[in-house]
Design a binder for these strands. Structure first.
Length: 287
DNA sequence: GTTCCGTCCTGACGGC
DNA sequence: TGCCGTCAGGACGGAA
């Protein structure tokens, strides 16, 4: 599924193939794909048609294309299965095509394809903060790859929480862009068990955790950015074109890359947490 | 105010 | 072979 590094690759692809072009027509093929655009499909299309697309931006897993003078934008979240494809208008329609944008230059169109429709698109006003962001995501914290991410502020707010460290990592209002996979990988790099209470984490340990988050994302981005010239391979949110070299995620019973101990899978928030029972010791009194 | 949990969705997969 | 249950999981709304 698309995580922050994949979304960044999509952003770069959109920048290359879509920015600077003018939208001719917008078609909504599945209403759920624009469910957060409350005025509906007709208004969605009207807000887009005839508008010029500016440079693509991203915060966490949200992407947006500012329109015209930049006071509004087309915003996208890919969810778990969403893809933004830049493709020739004559190419066959994908089974799960949800939204389709064509351009006045007659060049390749932009398609939003999403099997499970957890993703969505909307047109929204921008809010002029220190960095302008789409209105629906003003409550989202900066992601750890943004310049405006404040390590000191994160440390203070994390220690003020009374919860498990992984829950906090997945809380978008504290730090954005970290999903289940990279949370597990970053915790493994920092030698932290996912159930460790946030209020007892030391400053150096939080420093290690942030370093783990940034390194695992940077590694993925390095790998994803290597073959960046093919239209079809890169402007999408497909998992699998990153050879993520995961250390623990999805590796139940396989040896930990550091100590060889078999990785364990534990239920967590109706999903899974993977960790090394030796490198990431479970806090006492928590089972 | 903070924390937690159910819900949305479709396809792959395993068990019977 | 085919049916059914389970799992995957980001974000949000509402309950505790």
């Amino acid at each position: 599924m698309p995580e922050l590094p994949e979304v960044e690759v999509v952003r770069r692809g959109l920048d290359q193939w879509v920015s600077g072009r003018t939208i001719a027509k917008a078609e909504v093929l599945h209403p759920r794909a624009i469910r957060r655009h409350l005025p509906g499909a007709a208004e969605f299309a009207a807000r887009l048609e005839g508008r010029e697309v500016r440079a693509a931006e991203r915060r966490g897993k949200y992407l947006w294309l500012p329109l015209g003078d930049g006071r509004d934008a087309l915003m996208a979240h890919l969810g778990m299965s969403g893809q933004l494809l830049v493709t020739d208008s004559a190419s066959p329609v994908e089974k799960h095509l949800r939204v389709r944008l064509s351009f006045t230059d007659g060049g390749p169109e932009l398609r939003f394809v999403d099997q499970r429709t957890f993703g969505h698109l909307l047109v929204t006003e921008m809010v002029d903060l220190a960095r302008p962001v789409p209105a629906p995501i003003v409550h989202i914290a900066p992601d750890p790859l943004e310049e405006s991410f404040d390590d000191e502020d994160f440390t203070r707010r994390l220690r003020a929480r009374h919860t498990e460290v992984k829950r906090a990592l997945l809380d978008q209002s504290l730090i954005s862009g970290v999903g289940n996979i990279y949370a597990d990988e970053a915790l493994w790099r920092a030698g932290l068990h996912w159930a460790r209470p946030t209020e007892r984490l030391t400053r150096p340990k939080i420093g290690e955790l942030l370093r783990g988050v940034r390194e695992v994302m940077a590694d993925a981005l390095d790998q994803g950015g290597t073959s960046f010239d093919s239209l079809y391979v890169n402007v999408n949110g497909e998992s699998g074109y990153f050879d993520r070299s995961l250390a623990v995620y999805g590796r139940r019973d396989l040896p930990c890359g550091r100590c060889g101990t078999p990785v364990v899978r534990e239920p967590f928030m109706n999903r899974s947490s993977y960790s090394c029972p030796r490198c990431q010791v479970r806090p006492r009194g928590r089972s």
